[in-house]
Design a protein around this nucleic acid. Sequence first.
DNA 1: ACCACAATATGGTCAGACCATACTCGAAGC
DNA 2: GCTTCGAGTATGGTCTGACCATATTGTGGT
Lengths: 240, 240
Amino acid sequence: MDGTGWRPVKRTRTFEDVLAQIERRIAEDGLTVGDRLPAERHLAEQLGVSRSSVREAMRVLETLGVVSSQAGRGPDAGAVLTSRPDSALSDLLRLHLGLTGLEMREVIDTRHMIEQWAAARAATRAATRAATGGAATTELAAAVAGMDAAGSPEEFVEHDTAFHCAIADASGNRLVAAIMRSLRDSMRKYSVEAVRRLGDTSVLRADHVRILEAIDGGDPEEAARAVSEHLAHAYPTLFR
Amino acid sequence: MDGTGWRPVKRTRTFEDVLAQIERRIAEDGLTVGDRLPAERHLAEQLGVSRSSVREAMRVLETLGVVSSQAGRGPDAGAVLTSRPDSALSDLLRLHLGLTGLEMREVIDTRHMIEQWAAARAATRAATRAATGGAATTELAAAVAGMDAAGSPEEFVEHDTAFHCAIADASGNRLVAAIMRSLRDSMRKYSVEAVRRLGDTSVLRADHVRILEAIDGGDPEEAARAVSEHLAHAYPTLFR
DNA sequence: ACCACAATATGGTCAGACCATACTCGAAGC
DNA sequence: GCTTCGAGTATGGTCTGACCATATTGTGGT
């Protein structure tokens, strides 16, 4: 009999408890990237749980990209705190796409949104630091060159991905950049197929140059427009 | 001695192998949400590995929100495939924020981007199905009422979060909605503090109504503008 | 001073046991 | 026949203790 609103009685598995305590320690002790966590055996003993439970907690943290484990001895061994959300996000997207809990259309729309924003932001940043002289578009130019030299759709997409991720990096927002990388990662096969269907990539090249120049010229609106039209060219079936 | 380009020799842990095989089976057998995975003991035997390794793989899948485990017997027991990326994303953001691998500024900027897009998209959708009569803004109105009745900043933020997540839902993009939910989740404390600092929430209320009406009226540009100005009101220190 | 090798600390894996949970099914009682 | 209760059983959750692989550290001999 339930339904009386009596008790959810949240039973928490012990590895979740371990997880919570590790997170608390990170916050309270101000641990940060590069710091080491205690060894699994020590943690198990100090927390009064089995090593298996500690290991499951470690597996979760590793999956989320906050620790990186290394066997052996010395300063580099053990569980070290890191901050690499990229692969975690990629795994997440890939698996959920595989379960059709998400559709490619949604991924592409999200990418459209992010990339317009990132390009505009990158252009703004380029404009405000024009005096410093440092062109942040060397990576973009290199990616364009890579696409020119590509001998296959796979290779083309490789450099195309680098180009668009560089735009996200240039926005200066690491969260947006991480999301962008994982989006591109999970779109790879789809992009290769799109390029193959397209055949001629000269239109895409012109788009890329236009985007690059808009960013370099510090024109956010033009950058966003250029990105939008570029995506319409790359995925003509999706944007009517 | 290395540098000869000899050997990366990728050593793959056995639980990673288990993961790969599970993912392959999901793809090949066309498994989808609701389907069950074999029991841990069976998987271990069939794959010729220990149950611990299978469990670590399961923990990863659970962390990423693609399986949900339930003890006991019957159709609901065991590892069932699901697709709940929300808590995975929230955990990811929370932990990386805690490690200062990300800064709140980046989170808020990302939210700004997402919410402008989602509001505009929601308005467009509302316009195109205006004939069907179904106003998709009942949840939005309910959230506004909840904020009116709120007795504390915490309670206010609770309903405010519901309001803004409902906008993301109304965009029809589940990926964007999931990202939005996790962003709000990791911003909660920060938002409560912002509301407390603000004191008077009447400006926010007017903003909310304006956003709601823009979406209902099917005006994407106005919806995006309204969202943008709303965020400037809510976080005056961040937007100059 | 150098080198070879043992000691040690760490994560990775395994085997086997036990517990808690929750369904299944059959026997007992009505 | 129907209900009810309890044994059976399949499942995840946890623990123990062992062994292996790896990589640093210490030590002793040359």
